[in-house]
Nucleic acid binder design. Structure first.
Length: 440
RNA sequence: GGGGAAAUACUCAAGCGGUCAACGAGGACAGACUGUAAAUCUGUUGGCUACGCCUUCGUAGGUUCGAAUCCUGCUUUCCCCA
């Protein structure tokens, strides 16, 4: 390795790194030796099924980042071609295909996000982004089945889990020829990168093992070389629900789809059981630093040191420092027990707007408030915060409704005095369900 | 093609002519305790002008004083025989 100031990190053992981070699932033998020889090139593919990457994709992004931090060169592949076929892995039924325009848009969006994470200007191990559409667009069907298909047997393809489940499984759905062929397309990607980018490793989630090994098989048969595979385990939550989803659905990296505040809250809300595992994966801090942090956390779990560190680091990485500060500011105001109407009054308007941008809200005519409205009608009919009067009554009975951080009961009448800065009311049901009512 | 069974709320699942807005479990939400954690305990989980009324048990009709419950058509799903 050249002694260049642009080379940020000394070579580290990537496999060791994955292991202590709990990100190692399985690998093809020999990869560790291969990586120890010096800088290597590895890649992960991303499926352009949406116009933003989600938190679920972050494990793979972090894998690439850790890979780069160990001194290797990461390639992120966006699946312009594979997206047109549809990966059957983990799917029990045939998928619908996206049209080309949508795919292109999705790819463009994802590309921008990937660029936030990886370092594209650090000398020889700078990251790269490639699109497999580039080498598939001119690859004709006949050429493909002659040059690629000929080398892989159907027997081999049928043995893959993703295929077997659909053909022989208990609830066999059948599968189209298109999806059956998918592994060849992804496999060929690996071969292409191996041949043209000197890429010897494909990384991915454990569900990708079958597709990756089809690639190594192709490298062996078509190129007479050796490709390697390393997979990461599925991230789980201690309560068994799916990681990266909330009530509202997927959490996205795109600030327009999932606000920085909601993003920050997701990580901050991690349970004690999950936090140590998450921070190992999603933080770039060293083992020593994280061990120390965890030890401090254990001494006084109530301070939620791990959750805070985790939320801070990831939110800043994805949304930037300013957005993080705002998210924290908002969290402080919306969650702190001592917060009162006066706290809202105190804040300057522009900051207040930024803080509340992420809280669901509605606007109602001013006279609803000024003329005095019963709290039940206010919560349901006028604002739609609660779905029905029945629900509003229930919530009030449970003593769970607060107006501007103050609990109210069902005899309460909303009046002009409840307006903060003369223009909005902040309501909550419990701690986490928050809402803003503006008047005009 | 022939025969049989089933369809109930977010999910699973009771109910077999009135006492059913519909047992129970899970989930979800809230309260207490906390730390925006977990566990635990408690409450809620169709709507309303609310001791009453209205709409809901696949769908459309019918029988009946009265139907989620019985009958008929339709739709969908599952099973068995060809």
């Amino acid at each position: 390795m050249v002694s260049d100031i642009n080379v940020p990190t000394a070579m580290k053992n990537f496999i060791e790194e994955l292991k202590w981070r709990g990100m190692y699932h399985q690998s093809v033998d020999g990869i560790e030796t291969e990586l120890n020889k010096g800088m290597a090139v590895g890649y992960i593919g991303f499926d352009p099924t949406a116009d933003s990457l989600g938190i679920g994709n972050m494990v793979q992004i972090m894998t690439l980042l850790h890979f780069q931090k160990c001194g290797h060169k990461p390639i992120a592949l966006v699946g312009g071609a594979t997206g047109m076929v549809g990966d059957p892995s983990g799917k029990s039924a045939e998928r619908n295909l996206l049209d080309e325009e949508t795919l292109n848009y999705n790819i463009a969006c994802q590309r921008v996000q990937l660029e936030q994470f990886l370092d594209f200007d650090c000398g020889e191990n700078s990251a790269e982004i490639v699109n497999n559409y580039d080498w598939f667009k001119d690859f004709g069907f006949l050429d493909f089945i002659r040059d690629v298909g000929k080398h892989i047997t159907v027997n081999y393809m049928k043995a893959k889990d993703s295929v077997k489940k659909r053909i022989d499984g208990d609830n066999k759905e059948g599968m189209s020829f298109t999806e059956f062929t998918y592994q060849l397309v992804q496999g060929y990607d690996f071969y292409h990168l191996w041949k043209n980018h000197n890429c010897l490793l494909q990384l991915g989630g454990s569900d990708q093992w079958g597709n990756i090994t089809t690639g190594t098989e192709m490298i062996k048969r078509l190129g007479g070389g050796k490709g390697y595979a390393v997979t990461t385990p599925l991230i789980t939550k201690s309560d068994g629900t799916k990681f990266g989803k909330t009530e509202e659905g997927n959490l996205w990296l795109d600030g327009k789809k999932t606000s920085p505040y909601a993003f920050y809250q997701f990580w901050l809300g991690a349970s004690d059981d999950d936090a140590p595992g998450y921070i190992r994966i999603f933080s770039t801090q060293s083992k020593e630093e994280l061990d120390a942090l965890e030890a401090t956390h254990q001494q006084d779990p109530a301070r939620r040191i791990l959750q805070n560190a985790l939320a801070d680091e990831i939110t800043e990485r994805v949304h930037g420092k300013t957005a993080l500060e705002l998210a924290k500011e908002a969290s402080g105001i919306l969650f702190k027990k001592e917060a009162r109407k006066a706290d809202f009054e105190r804040l300057p308007d522009d900051l207040l707007d930024a803080v509340f941008k992420d809280v669901p809200q509605t606007t109602i005519p001013r006279d609803v408030v000024t003329s005095g409205t019963a709290i039940i009608d206010f919560l349901s009919d006028h604002t739609g915060f609660l779905r029905s009067k029945g629900e509003a009554r229930r919530a009030l009975k449970e003593n769970s409704v607060s107006l501007n951080k103050k609990k109210v009961n069902d005899g309460y009448t909303v009046s002009e005095e409840d307006l903060v800065k003369g223009r909005f009311v902040f309501i909550q049901r419990g701690k986490k369900k928050q809402f803003i009512v503006n008047v005009e």
